[in-house]
Design a protein around this nucleic acid. Structure first.
Lengths: 113, 113, 113, 113
DNA sequence: TTTT
DNA sequence: TTTT
C-alpha cells in the first residue's frame, strides 16, 4: 500500500556523478541529486526561473543501474517515497534531511545520451 | 509543465488543527502537517511501523477550504509540489525546511468524519 | 520501469460486488468497476455532474483482499496500469475493452465502512 | 479536485503527426496516439515486448503547442484524465472509445529532437 | 502531532 | 453500477 500513501514523481537533470557505496552485507546504495526547473511570472510580469534540488537514494539493482549508466547532466524521471530523517552532525547536533527513496527510474532522451 | 516535473501525492492524517494566516494583500495561507503511515517486516520478521510527517502549505481558495473543514485527525489526500527552502533562524543561522505546496486536496471518508 | 511509463491513479466508489474467479493454476482474479465523479460549470453557469466508470482487474494476493473486504459502494483508491485489449464477441466480431490492472489498492474512510 | 480522483501519467512515443482541428468558436483541439512499451518475462522465461496505444486529446493552448512542436516518433510525457465515451458509428451503432484529456505535456530528450 |  |  506504500505507493498510494506516499509517492513522488520528478523529472530533472542529475547534478553530479552518483556516489556509490557497497555495504558488507552486499547491499549497494547509490545517491545523487537532481534539479527540477520551473518558471513562472511574478506580480510584475517578470519571468522567474526556479530550481529545486532533491536528494535521491537508490538501493540494490537500481543502484547498480544508476552507478553504471547515470552521468552528470542526464535527464531522468523517477518515482519514489518521500522520507524525512534526522542524523547527528559533527558537533552532536541534530540535523535533518529530506530524501527520496527511489522505486523506479528511467533515463530520458534515448540512446544519444 | 510544473506538474509533470515535480509532483507529490500523499494520503494521511492531519496532525493538528491547520494554522491560517491572512496577509494584508488579501492572500490567505494555511499550513498543517500530515502523517503517512506504513509498516514493513524487518530482517527478524518483526513488524515495524513507520510514520513520516510532512509539512503542507495551502494558498488562496484551497487555504480557505482547509481552514473551514480540515480538523485534527482527518484523513486527506493531497497533490502538490515538493519545495526545499532556507530561512534565517533566531540566531541568524541558516535553517532548511521541506514543504509541499498543495495544488489539490480531498477529504476522505465522507461527512461522517 | 513500468510504473513511470504507464500509471493511473483513481479514487472512487465501487459499483457492485467484485467478481472473483480462481483459475486451475491457483491464480485468483477479481474484477469490479469504479465510478469517479467530478463536476464543472458549463458555459451557461450550470453545474454539470460527470461520472466515469472504469474497469479494474486485480490479481493474486490483491484479488483475495478485494474479494474479502471490498463491497458495493466502498470508496477506494487504486494505482495501476492502463491496458487496452481486443477479444472476440459472440458473433466473432472484434470487441475492445479498456481495463486497469491494479498494482496497489487502499480502502478509504476507515472501518466504519 | 479532479486531479486526485482521476489522473493518468504516460511516457511514450507519438505514433503519427498530431491532427489539429480549429472550431468556429476559436477553440483548438489536437489529437494523437502514443505508444507505451514494456517488457516482462513469461512463465517460460521468454522476454515479451508489449506495446499499448493510447488516444490523447489536447485543447486550447496545449493543442497549439502540440500542433507546432510534436512530431511523429517524439518521446513525450503527459498527465491527464481518463475518459470513456460513446459515439454513433456510421451504421448508427454505438461505439466506445477511451481517451486521455491531457492537462500537461512535456517533450523529452532536449532540443535535439 | 495523526491513524489503524 | 457508485457516491455527495
Amino acid at each position: 500500500m506504500r505507493n498510494l500513501r506516499n509517492s513522488v514523481q520528478l523529472i530533472g537533470n542529475v547534478g553530479s556523478a552518483p556516489e556509490v557505496k557497497a555495504f558488507d552485507s552486499g547491499r549497494v546504495k547509490a545517491t545523487c541529486s537532481i534539479a527540477t526547473n520551473s518558471s513562472y511570472k511574478n506580480q510584475k510580469g517578470e519571468k522567474i526561473e526556479e530550481t529545486q534540488w532533491h536528494n535521491l537514494v537508490f538501493w540494490g539493482k537500481l543502484a547498480e543501474v544508476v552507478s553504471e549508466y547515470v552521468k552528470k547532466g542526464n535527464e531522468i524521471a523517477i518515482e519514489g517515497k518521500l522520507i524525512h530523517r534526522a542524523y547527528d552532525g559533527p558537533k552532536g547536533e541534530k540535523r535533518y534531511i529530506t530524501e527520496i527513496t527511489v522505486n523506479d527510474m528511467m533515463m530520458l532522451g534515448g540512446k544519444k545520451r
